[in-house]
Write a protein that binds this DNA or RNA. Sequence first.
DNA 1: CCATCCATTTTTGTATACAATAGCGGCCAC
DNA 2: GTGGCCGCTATTGTATACAAAAATGGATGG
Lengths: 215, 215
Amino acid sequence: MNSSAADRAYAEVRGLILSGDASPGTPLREEALADIVGVSRTPIREALRRLEAELYAVRTRSGRLVVADWDVDDVAEMFALRAMLEGHAAARAAVRMTACELDQLKACNVDLEAAIAASEPDIAGFLAANRRFHDIVLRTSASVRLTTMLAGLVEQPIVRRTATRYDRSDLERSALEHGQLIQACAARDAEWARSVMTAHIRRALHAFRAASPSK
Amino acid sequence: MNSSAADRAYAEVRGLILSGDASPGTPLREEALADIVGVSRTPIREALRRLEAELYAVRTRSGRLVVADWDVDDVAEMFALRAMLEGHAAARAAVRMTACELDQLKACNVDLEAAIAASEPDIAGFLAANRRFHDIVLRTSASVRLTTMLAGLVEQPIVRRTATRYDRSDLERSALEHGQLIQACAARDAEWARSVMTAHIRRALHAFRAASPSK
DNA sequence: CCATCCATTTTTGTATACAATAGCGGCCAC
DNA sequence: GTGGCCGCTATTGTATACAAAAATGGATGG
């Protein structure tokens, strides 16, 4: 969509970080990245500033950027913040949800259930449907600030997990909890929606921890 | 402290916005700002990107940045988010607080009380002490992510208020609530601290609303 | 009088050149 | 052999030049 050089640079460098291709501690040198992405330093700088603001990268004393290293506490904190903020988003969404958006939510969850119904679950399909589900909630919450704040928070723990195994029971629980959220939204019950979403994210934290290679 | 051209540009442009010198809707043209600040467009761009990320400015379809216009709902949402996040920070801080930091908090509140004790309250002194108080809590929470997310949230509603009158009872209530937070931290009670801080911010929202010129 | 189209001008996006500074390695003295 | 100093290199910060896209203005036709 946004295919400016700076946006491509952002996506590409973030990809390097999330894929583990650039492991924590790796220096992010502007010129080197410019060569990789095929643009000049200017859009690279812009991308790096965004990544720094989202804490994908940290600045060593004086200038140098390196890939950030998230320990277990960091990840737990990210989930805690996400639980609060997405809970808040769900509460706002519940009272703003129209029939149309409710239908979209239901359709999303149908897709999600379909993705995990097969004997071999379709993880990519699950993640896509899950992502759409949460995006709809966020959009319905109608708070640009919330959306902005959550933007840098959702991707991060997911991708580190690509190598790890997804437990089927976790996937099924997700579908169940999404169903509960749909109920809460249908009932226009903000606090119910908040509770369900908060619980949903906090469970995801523990699922993530259990699946983590290094405890 | 950070006196690079980009940081000065950020501070100066943000000052223009918060002072109302650049009113909502005013276009933020890079070259014009470069002339004002006395640097080239490059650091100005960097500053504008930060201001955009913090929603001080919004981007009209295709490129142009204009000063953002916060309506009452926006401000309410900012306070709600701040209440959640600072509440979380207080909860974390309560269990991490050392005697040293507790003393700093107490000292801050002594200053704050001194600032409002005079017959004519020292608003600037109050704001400074208040700021230090919240900064200590945030620092003690030991979450860089939380600190980053709150950074763009605390300044914004305050300065719009420079013209409005501060009610003495509100100032006194602030001092009282800070005292309660100190108690909660002394007791290492995370949920008590969270509740006090959340209530503190939410009261501030209503004080702000009451003092707002345009209701 | 109003809408539309084209040219000009303004404004942003990107690339590159230059300046400043920190890091690094070698060399020398001890 | 080790520690400190000096010069060089690598890297970021800033300025400027150029390209692209969009707004503005006026002229023109209806």
